[in-house]
């Protein structure tokens, strides 16, 4: 649900990073925050616990530039990944324009990935969205770890529809901007389709 303001010539879009606990959603946003020019970003807000686990959400506003005279702003959000924050997770999806699913490549997190995709699908359905109709990309994070599962297996588990995916090592920044660009492109294409 984007907000298009013809008066101030701005377009605002909301992108949500979803995924199981500790998969690297916040790390993605932190990397984007570090690597973006100060004039293109707002504050990175993290509503987190004392142990730096996301409690409600992280929020990063980005103003990347102009398209045809309109300032394009992306508001990036993460959800709390831990299972027991289900109620808060649902709230963040409200009005979403694009979703990044961050999967943890480690073999022991495969069940958590699958559970989280199912949770995402259900939570969107509850709000009247269909995941297959939303701008949606997958990021396979932590590709540098020795216990990372093969890509084919990950695709089989969480990406049966074969949507666009990216490999990443968010702690080093690899693949982070590629993922953001991938989802931003889909969101803008969706706007083109509708307007």
């Amino acid at each position: 649900m984007s907000f298009i303001n013809y008066s101030s010539r701005e377009i605002n879009c909301k992108i949500v990073y979803y995924g199981p606990g500790l998969c690297g959603k916040t790390t993605n946003l932190q990397h984007i925050y570090r690597k973006t020019n100060p004039d293109q970003k707002g504050k990175l807000i993290s509503l987190a616990t004392e142990t730096e686990r996301t409690l409600f959400f992280d929020f990063l506003p980005l103003a990347l530039g102009d398209i045809r005279g309109f300032k394009v702003r992306f508001h990036l959000y993460t959800v709390p990944g831990q299972v027991f924050y289900a109620a808060s997770r649902k709230l963040i999806l409200k009005g979403v324009d694009g979703v990044v699913f961050v999967a943890d490549s480690q073999v022991e997190r495969m069940d958590a990935n699958i559970e989280s995709v199912e949770d995402l699908t259900l939570n969107l359905q509850e709000q009247g969205y269909e995941l297959s109709k939303l701008p949606f990309v997958i990021q396979y994070n932590k590709r540098d770890l020795p216990n990372a599962v093969a890509l084919e297996e990950l695709n089989r588990a969480v990406n049966p529809d074969g949507i666009t995916w990216f490999e990443a090592v968010a702690t080093k920044g690899n693949g982070v901007f590629e993922t953001l660009k991938g989802v931003a492109k889909l969101v803008l294409m969706e706007l083109r389709k509708n307007y």
């Binding site: 013809y6 990347l64 530039g65 398209i67 931003a184 803008l188 706007l191 083109r192 307007y195």
Partner: peptide, 25 residues
């Protein structure tokens, strides 16, 4: 307007891949 497809001066109608790439330079 959306139903009648008469969004004035829509900035999206002709959005290209290049426009999007430019955002990420």
């Amino acid at each position: 307007k959306k139903q009648e497809k008469v969004i004035d001066d829509s900035p999206f109608a002709e959005i290209t891949d290049e426009d999007i790439d430019n955002l990420f330079r």
